[in-house]
Design a protein around this nucleic acid. Sequence first.
DNA 1: GCCATTGTACTATTTTATTAGTACAATAGG
DNA 2: CCTATTGTACTAATAAAATAGTACAATGGC
Lengths: 141, 141
Amino acid sequence: MASLFALDAHDPLPLYAQLERAIKAAIVTGRLGLEQQLPTVRQLAVDLKINANTVARVYAELEAQGILASRRGVGTFVKTLPAGASSTGVKRAQQLSDLTEQFLAEAAGRGFTSEEVLLQVQRLCAGRKEKPHGRREKKES
Amino acid sequence: MASLFALDAHDPLPLYAQLERAIKAAIVTGRLGLEQQLPTVRQLAVDLKINANTVARVYAELEAQGILASRRGVGTFVKTLPAGASSTGVKRAQQLSDLTEQFLAEAAGRGFTSEEVLLQVQRLCAGRKEKPHGRREKKES
DNA sequence: GCCATTGTACTATTTTATTAGTACAATAGG
DNA sequence: CCTATTGTACTAATAAAATAGTACAATGGC
C-alpha cells in the first residue's frame, strides 16, 4: 500500500465519506494507535490526490466526533476510539441485522461464498478480540 | 418494512447507489426471485419518496448489467442473479479482506462488539448455507 | 382503434461534492 | 523576533446528484 489509506475515485461514495470511513477503519483495526499522528492535511491531500479542503473537512468532522484532535502548527492525532451511538433494544438488533445483510449481499454480489465470508470475519475478529471500549458520550443531537 | 427497499436520505451514499445495492441485496438474499416483477418506476419513486428519474436510472443500469429486464407497458423483472467478477488469487483475497475490514469498522463505529458481529454473520450465513439463492418465498397471489 | 399503463428521453433547476486559490492563526524551533 | 509548519477560514468555480416537469414509445386490455 502506497499510503495509509486508499480511496477509489470510481466508488459512488463521496471522497470525504470514504476517507472518514478509512480513518475509522484504521483506528478500529489498530493500524492507527492512540496518540499517533496522522499525515498533515496538505500531505495527505497530495498522497490521495484529492483536495486539501476535503481532507481538512474530514479531520474537522472526526474531531467533532471526538476521534481526532488537531493542534495548529503541530498536527492531528488519534484521541479516542470511534464510538457508536449504541442504541439499545430492538432497533439496535435490527441495525446490526441490516448492516450485516448489506455486507453479505455486497460480498455475494462480488462472487464470495458465505463460507469464505464467514471465515474472513472470524479471522479478523480473532485479531482484535474484545475492545469495545466503554460508552463515551458527547453531547450532540 | 413498509416497502421492499429502504433508503436513508442521510446516508452519504447517493440514492441511486443505495437503491442499486438494495435491489441486488434483495435478489441475493432471495427476497426477490427470478422473473419476479419489481414495482413500477413511478410507484417505487412514491414509496421511497425519491424522484422517478432516479428509479428509472437504476433500473436502466441494472438492465445494462443483465440483472433486470424491462418491457414498456409491462414492467421490470428480475432476469438473472448478480454475478461477481470472481477474480481469483491475491487480488480476490485482498478484496474480501478490505470489504470485511470496512464492514467491521462500520459495525465497531456503531458500537457493536466483535462478538456480536461475528454471531450475527454466523446466523445469517447459516440461514442461507451454500446457495446464495434457491429459496423462494411463498407469496400470496 | 382506443386508451390506460409502463418504460424511456429530454430540458431545466436546485442542492451537494469537489476543486482551486488565498489568507489567517497558532505552534515549534532557531 | 523571525520563520517555516500546521490547521483553519473563507470565496469562487466546476462537476455530480437529485428533483420537477413534460413528452414520447411500446405494450396489453377493452
